[in-house]
């Protein structure tokens, strides 16, 4: 099967898994609400019945921030701990949700049900946490190795009179190298998780090993596929971030529309994630010599 077929298969699988996607959206939204809504009421009480918000229509206003600095400073500990809480809960929750998602994406024969989603999430939970952590460590390690090498190059060149802009070039090359290596690590994590769900084995280290062997066994197919998926994903993310965050509705109705629109887009974002998992699962489920071996 060629890349296009896997992309298509991934798309079909993710659409079928819409219930799981909705569950993920609801849970993430609830989690974020834990911090967003207290923050909102904190701001409301700082502003009280003042009309100062008229200065906030165009942008955050430095004068207003200055005047509210004491009040805002008192919110900071709450925001920080809230942020950490959301970070950790989000990480843990995602391990569970990813388990669920892979379960309903991979099972071609049975209908993707919510029961299967939750069962899959629960069954793979600990192992998925470990795989996520290991992958994160690998990504950080790769980034710091590349970063360290480029720093060494820059500082070695810096002792002489280096051409202007050389530092910029080195940084750009380093970023490109990391960007090229990233799909590989993501593929490893995805194959590992897909394999584990498919084989019902809770062995994260073995799964990662298989992730590596499958990645390189199907490299010519899976790498370009992952690059395409990641370009689509990050393009979408960048578009949403730049466009949505710069929208400035000035009426209550406008803000509500922004809210609805942004949530629909976020659901699509989760759908794109499911699409990636679906594509990887599709590659893994297709018969391939390498894959046979690793079984």
């Amino acid at each position: 099967m060629n890349i296009l077929t896997h992309l298509k298969s991934g798309a079909v699988r993710s659409l079928k898994a819409w219930k799981g996607v909705l569950v993920i959206w609801i849970l993430i939204f609830s989690l974020v609400s834990l911090i967003a809504f207290p923050l909102k009421s904190g701001l409301k009480s700082l502003i009280g019945s003042s009309m100062i918000t008229e200065l906030l229509y165009d942008s955050i206003n430095a004068d207003v921030i200055t005047d509210m600095s004491k009040g805002l400073a008192s919110l900071i500990p709450a925001i920080t701990s809230g942020f950490l809480l959301v970070f950790f809960l989000g990480f843990i929750m995602n391990a569970f949700l990813t388990g669920g998602l892979f379960s309903i994406l991979g099972n071609k024969n049975s209908k993707p049900s919510l029961a299967l989603f939750f069962a899959g999430g629960a069954a793979n939970f600990w192992s998925f946490i470990l795989i996520t952590i290991l992958t994160a460590v690998m990504i950080l390690l790769t980034a710091s190795i590349v970063g360290g090498i480029s720093f060494a190059i820059v500082s070695a060149a810096g002792s002489g009179t280096s051409a202007p802009g050389a530092t910029g070039k080195v940084i750009r090359i380093a970023l490109i190298v990391v960007a090229l290596l990233l799909p590989i690590l993501i593929l490893v994590a995805d194959f590992a998780r897909a394999w584990q769900v498919a084989n019902n084995e809770k062995k994260p280290f073995k799964a990662i090993g298989i992730g590596f062997s499958t990645t390189f066994g199907t490299f010519l197919k899976s790498y370009p596929l992952m690059v395409i998926v990641m370009v689509v994903q990050s393009g979408f993310g960048a578009l949403v971030m730049s466009k949505l965050l710069s929208l400035k509705p000035s009426t209550g109705g406008g803000v509500f529309l922004l809210f609805i629109g942004s949530q629909v887009l976020f659901i699509i974002r989760i759908m794109l994630r499911a699409w990636r998992y679906g594509c990887v699962t599709s590659i893994m489920e297709s018969p391939s010599p390498c894959f046979q071996r690793s079984m």
Partner: peptide, 19 residues
């Protein structure tokens, strides 16, 4: 009090945190 800007900033905060 006009809460629209606060609601808007909260909304954007939610978007940012979700992503």
């Amino acid at each position: 009090p006009d809460r629209v800007p606060i609601r808007r900033y909260t909304n954007k905060f939610i978007i940012f945190m979700q992503y």
